[in-house]
Design a protein around this nucleic acid. Sequence first.
DNA 1: CTTGACCTTGGAGCGTAGTCCACTGTTTAG
DNA 2: CTAAACAGTGGACTACGCTCCAAGGTCAAG
Lengths: 133, 133
Amino acid sequence: MRIGELAAQAGMTRDTIRFYEKVGLVEGRRLPNGYRDFPPETVAWLQYIRTAQTLGFSLSEIARSGEKLRGAPDTAVALSALFEEKIQVVDARIAELAALRADLAARVGTGCPLRASGRSTAAGDHREHERHV
Amino acid sequence: MRIGELAAQAGMTRDTIRFYEKVGLVEGRRLPNGYRDFPPETVAWLQYIRTAQTLGFSLSEIARSGEKLRGAPDTAVALSALFEEKIQVVDARIAELAALRADLAARVGTGCPLRASGRSTAAGDHREHERHV
DNA sequence: CTTGACCTTGGAGCGTAGTCCACTGTTTAG
DNA sequence: CTAAACAGTGGACTACGCTCCAAGGTCAAG
């Protein structure tokens, strides 16, 4: 499959796919004329990338799962494992949000809405991840 | 309060605060010598910014809530309203994640983890794509 | 008076995730 | 044969949210 068809199937632009190739998220052979040639599974992989992105994963994180996948004997099994892993992450994220929600709810209607007391619990100190979700 | 103390109190760098001022997220007067001078509430406002960020809000979105706040007769009440609003958003986000979780869970252990149906036959299978995600 | 801590500004740079563009090469249809 | 529709490359550019730096101004203590 050439890049144009792949892009159409996966619902993204050729440029995006070329960008993904540049950063190692997808790989394909080249036809004798230099055109990229992708196996049909790439469509599914690109869709997986989109899913993972909506879960808040960065492309480099996704690339790491991709490597795991490549080294696996059974792709289907490896993918299932991956999904289970992502479910853990989603659950963690939901728990985080629930804590934030509780924190917010506690502040509604208090005399001191901004400062409150619950700073330590939820919002205090996860700096490292979560840029835009 | 000058910028250094504010930065220490709010747990961010002077540069970040200057950046926030540049984009209109915070504002302060100037002392005769040109130094910035912030009212003490700014600490709470900066902490609110951090909270809102962990909720996935962009700085420009946060700036918009800030404007609402400034135009309010009662800051505490306005803030409570803001928190209630954010709770809606958090709930929506949680629902979104729950849906993604369900989607992931449905794919775990299926013969076709990525596509959801029909992956089993090796290569010739050009089925119309169901766009999950 | 000097030192050091603090403050000012402007501008460069970074990582992420693309997007757009010009220019060139290849393939296919009429 | 030519034109359109593809494909390739490199590089510039965007937006976001900072972060760092150089060069200089201000101020209190010793």
